[in-house]
């Protein structure tokens, strides 16, 4: 596969294209035929019960997880292809795609040996070869935007979960990605710290960032999503605007799931 082939790219193409993905872990089918296009500037929120395959799907987009069949294209570059039985993953294409995709993890995964500032500075310097002064300036700007101007010299273990996750978001943004992937970014947080992270994510969505968000925060989903994608048992059950999904879902299972997760106070 050559780069020219991979870069056969039309202007109207979605930024992220997921086609016919299947994946089995051992005997258990986790994804059973998923198609998903995300266009530039779109905020796509993936919801669904535990074990529906949301996390696996989002991790496949930046090749942290491999696929059994199907194809994943990011910004016109095929990064994983298993359309004809053989799985192919081009290391160079994967790296290119990862440069365009910022990822935020449930467990933050900050580098514990570095300060908040160094966490945000180091990847651009080491990976994108950004000059140190410029990277420091950018990191300080981002950390300030995250409300962490006074914590830049703290190590991760000196920060609360909410602060750590905001540093992690700044770290991903410092690479200047075209899209951001959020894998249950608030699930590991104490309830009172969820809000501060959601606020940062909401601001980011409003700034026009392309985002794929896996979350259990339904109210937040309704507020920020251009499109809600409901997953169940390894498939996309249905998708649509928040109004449609939350008010008149077309599947009984969606209704069931929403009833189970939305408390009366939230609705």
């Amino acid at each position: 596969m050559t780069t020219t082939e991979q870069r056969a790219k039309a202007t109207s193409q979605p930024l992220i294209r997921v086609e016919g993905i299947h994946r089995t872990f051992g005997e258990i089918p986790v994804l059973r035929g998923v198609d998903l296009d995300v266009t530039e500037g779109e905020v796509a929120v993936v919801i669904g019960p535990s074990g529906s395959g949301k996390t696996t799907l989002i991790r496949m987009i930046n090749a942290l997880e491999t696929i059994d069949s199907g194809r994943i294209t990011v910004d016109g570059t095929i990064i994983q292809d298993a359309t004809n039985g053989r799985h192919r993953m081009n290391a160079k294409a994967v790296r290119l795609a990862r440069l365009e995709l910022g990822m935020v993890f449930q467990r933050f995964n900050l580098f514990p040996h570095l300060t908040a500032l160094e966490n945000v500075m180091m990847p651009p310097v080491r990976v994108r070869k950004v000059p140190k002064d410029e990277a420091r300036e950018r990191a300080l700007r981002l950390l300030t935007r995250m409300g962490l101007a006074d914590r830049v010299n703290n190590r991760p273990h000196e920060l609360s979960g909410g602060q750590q996750q905001r540093v992690a978001i700044a770290r991903a943004l410092a690479m200047e990605p075209k899209a951001m992937l959020f894998d249950e970014a608030t699930s590991a947080l104490d309830p009172e710290l969820v809000g501060e992270v959601l606020k940062v994510m909401r601001d980011l969505a409003e700034s026009g960032m392309t985002m794929i968000i896996v979350t259990h925060e339904m109210r937040f989903a309704a507020q920020v999503a251009d499109r809600i994608i409901v997953m169940d048992q390894g498939r996309i059950l249905e998708q649509g605007t928040p109004e449609v999904i939350f008010n008149k879902p077309s599947h009984a299972r969606t209704e069931e799931f929403l009833r189970a997760v939305i408390s009366p106070a939230e609705a």
């Binding site: 930046n62 790296r95 990862r98 440069l99 990822m103 995964n109 900050l110 580098f111 990847p123 990976v127």
Partner: peptide, 13 residues
């Protein structure tokens, strides 16, 4: 494991 994943996701070789 999260350290390996975070570094990979940041496009580190």
């Amino acid at each position: 494991q999260g350290q390996w994943e975070a570094s990979a996701a940041l496009a580190m070789d």
